[in-house]
């Protein structure tokens, strides 16, 4: 039994081909695994190791470095409240306090129904719109307590327009076979690219 679905196995192979070395696909494949399951399972790491030609310990090493990869299940919606300076100056602590009360969990916790995980996060590059938060890495700006409550109500409806945790970009890059250059391992390339050669020939 393989971890990745047939469609994701095909995607994984397509992704690996884009890189001069397969190991570079490690983080993209961890994202793909998290997209499929909502978190990164041991089975996923073992299969990624095989796909990129390394050990599962190496995959765990990379996986555990990055905060977005969750090695245990989280809520359907991950709410990250920014706590760094600009947001802190504009009331992030109050917002966090309100969120903890509204959700009935402390920062880092998941609601019993598995709907929401609350986290304090670092700067989200929306500093002018403080205090801000992200729901599954989609921004909400200048969030008040009332807006936070309204957001929870909205996310509790069947189709709130935010994909479940694990899904990042909903548009995938597709490099068409007909005009891709392709990625050769660096040791197989020893000459300057042809457009530089051409110029030299002309001069």
């Amino acid at each position: 039994m393989s971890f990745f679905s047939d469609e994701n196995t095909r995607l994984a192979e397509e992704i690996i081909k884009r890189y001069p070395k397969a190991r570079s696909a490690m983080i993209p494949l961890l994202h793909l695994a998290q997209e499929q399951e909502g978190w990164v399972t041991e089975a996923a790491m073992a299969e990624i190791a095989e796909l990129v030609g390394t050990s599962s310990a190496e995959v765990l090493g990379t996986c555990s470095f990055y905060e977005m990869f969750k090695r245990e299940p989280v809520g359907k919606y991950l709410i990250n409240i920014c706590t760094t300076m600009s947001c802190a100056l504009m009331g992030a602590a109050d917002l966090m306090q309100h969120a903890e009360k509204a959700l009935g969990v402390k920062s880092g916790g998941t609601t019993e129904d598995g709907m929401f995980t609350l986290e304090g996060a670092e700067c989200q590059a929306a500093c002018t719109e403080a205090p801000c938060l992200q729901v599954n890495y989609r921004h909400r700006y200048r969030v008040t307590a009332d807006e936070f409550d309204a957001m929870l109500a909205e996310l509790s409806t069947p189709d709130p327009g935010v994909p479940e945790h694990g899904v990042l970009s909903q548009i995938r890059q597709h490099i068409p076979e007909k005009n891709t250059v392709g990625a050769l391992p660096p040791e197989e390339v020893n000459a300057p690219p042809v457009w530089l050669n051409t110029e030299e020939d002309q001069s």
């Binding site: 977005m68 990869f69 670092e122 042809v194 457009w195 051409t198």
Partner: peptide, 17 residues
């Protein structure tokens, strides 16, 4: 139509300043 050929690959990070 030139001799210039290059691929651009989109790659996402995963949370590490």
């Amino acid at each position: 139509g030139s001799h210039f050929s290059v691929d651009i690959v989109l790659h996402w990070g995963a949370g590490a300043y």
